[in-house]
Write a protein that binds this DNA or RNA. Sequence first.
RNA 1: GGAGGGAUGCCGGAGCGGCCAAUCGGAGCAGACUGUAAAUCUGCCGCCCUAAGGGCUACACAGGUUCGAAUCCUGUUCCCUCCA
Length: 391
Amino acid sequence: MLGSDFGDPQIKEQMAKELRQRLIDAKKEGRPLRVYCGYDVTAPDLHLGHTITIRKLKQFQDFGHDVNFVIGTFTTLIGDPSDRDTARSAAIEEKVKQNAQSYAEQAFKILDKQKTRVRYNNDWLSKLTFKDVINMASCFTVQQFLVRDRIQKRLESNDPIWLREFLYPLAQGYDAVELKADVQLGATEQLFNLMACRRLQEFYGLKPQICLTFPVLVGIDGADRMSKSRGNYIGIDEPPETIYGKTMSIPDNIMLQYFELLTDIDEAELGDIKKQIESGANPMSLKKRLAFDITKQYHGEEKAKEAEAHFEKTVQNKELPDEIEEYKITDNITISQLITQSGLAASRSEAMRLIKQGAVSIDGKKVDDANLNVAKGVTIKVGKRRYLKTV
RNA sequence: GGAGGGAUGCCGGAGCGGCCAAUCGGAGCAGACUGUAAAUCUGCCGCCCUAAGGGCUACACAGGUUCGAAUCCUGUUCCCUCCA
């Protein structure tokens, strides 16, 4: 399968072999494969990073397999080891519930709602007894955890390692048992957890699942993994202009990765794009194609075209956008006050700074006097993409 | 239970009595340039004011010492490591 990625070629080969065999077996039994991927709910929105596996789920779905979208309503609560504040956990639980809902809805931008089973792992994990946990724990040794890279590093730097972190793979692993999964997808960093699932499945007398892992998507800063908390993400629920614009803002050198992981283009085309980049083609036009493709996936072709037009107009031609928000002003208002009040700047100090830096203009004319009175019916521009029309 | 270490701006992390609104890096913002909101370079980056200048609030919290404290002392809260 295009895009799957294992650090270890042996595992990859093994998994490929097992997957072929499982497909044959399933066909004989006249049943589809049961495929799933689990998502912890740390933020209310899905972003492009999540879509790598969701898109793979969709592929399985298109082949007629039984796709389960598992939301980690339970695992999310034990996942974050830094959060031990039990007083807050009730509120967190509530939030997780809400976010889980929006996760499912957003996932249906990719998956077929009719054919997808949405599962919440709190449904089964919260019912396990301490005895179950002990039983599962007997499948693993502490050494297996200690050799992990991240654990090693923290051991060396004296950072805390929480017991609950060791329990996390058990909880996640039980998902695979409960679902009787044939195949589980996950990010490469999840390999350890995915493999733990196999052990538990065997322990419970099931055939171990096939694990497929996929690369972690780098964020639009080109440095860290995409995540909401780092702010380097593109949410699939964001407006078309935003998705388009944010895609245009990724560094040129990660463009190919984005093509590979986030669009449907095939290998031949990918090779072609690669060649174009290497031969010094203008990355801008390729990136526009990428931005268009991604925007289209989540908003449709029409909106994608509009987003592209908007980008060309405002960014490339530095013209004003078609629609500018109107803001009602009082008679005696200075430009610095207006910018602050309307929220174009976070504070008066910032407004002053922006004016000093030459970032503010009225009807295309740069403003250098912060006390300038603003008339009605003019267009204010702050920086590259903040606009306002006074009324 | 015992011993030690720590809490600094969005994040990481200096500073260890005045030169601190606080070094530096990241993020963010702006300008220039351009091939795009890429890259690169430069600047900004607590809040308020009639903004060349002035004021206020800030270095976990509460007190204290001092002409003067992020820096010293006392207490409190929280966190980490090690031993048991």
